[in-house]
Amino acid sequence: MGEEEVKQEEKEEKAKPKEEFKLSFDYFNESRLGIFALIIGILVAIFPGLPAFIKGIGMMIVFVWGADSVRKTARYGLGTGVPSIGVLAMGFGIIGGITGIAVASLSFGTLVVGGVEIAFGVLAGVALLALLGFVSGNLANGDKFINMKIPGLERGMTELGMAGTLAVLIETSIITGTYAITSVLPNVINNGVIAVIFIISAFGMLQPLNTCLGADERRGRTLLMSIEIGGIASIILGLVTTLTLSAVQGVPLIVLGAVVWVVFYRAYMKACMKEAYAVKGTGLIKTLGG
């Protein structure tokens, strides 16, 4: 079955013009992507009543933003490895997410307009973590403090604080469908799903650059991998959502995740093979033609 699939894929590849498959991040340069992802992330985060797969798309966009910020700061060499900054983003994200959820659970934290819940309270967490990220970026880059001399580290850490918080908030709202603390505590925190959220979000942000870094690193290719990890995260969250909410919410998320994973894995592998000088397959991954 595997070989047939490969042949079919090869045929499809030849039949399609290559331009059609090409995904470009040229329009979304670093600033545009940041603003776009922030707006989408906030919109998705403050409406906990949205269907899970729309929130899944919002989560992937936030992951791409986080990965772009990691790329921005870590390509100059941090001295402690790329993972440290992704884990830092999620350390911030957990603090901000829990604070945001606590504020949203207050009576004034969530407005109900015509039956639609609008959780403005979560924005408190995002704003506080933007401040914390900005301060720690200044500490790390300031002349009088650590003096890391990385251009744009202040901005990168601010963005990472916000992206980490938004990722935690959106994933929490995917699983519970609300920010009410009586529902969040048993379904997300006390059963340990928060640890899964921590690590998959950290991977969505740190893994792309950690894998692709080097002399020939290209932004478009690095960000493809971030979307792919977003797909894997959607599958995992879909399984959890099926258990906590219902299959109506969970199954579309799993399907979305699987489609995104397959499409972007293929796109990433194609980009890698096209941009490499030569590819020699080991036979372990069939698409390499080994």
Binding site: S84, L88, M148, N190, A195
Partner: peptide, 24 residues
């Protein structure tokens, strides 16, 4: 669980700032 994960978050934020200070 909340206390554990928040303690870890604060710890990680401090540990990474310290790691950048050491630089290697």
């Amino acid at each position: 669980a909340t206390a554990g994960i928040v303690a870890m978050g604060i710890f990680i934020a401090n540990a990474i700032i310290a790691a950048y200070n050491i630089g290697g």
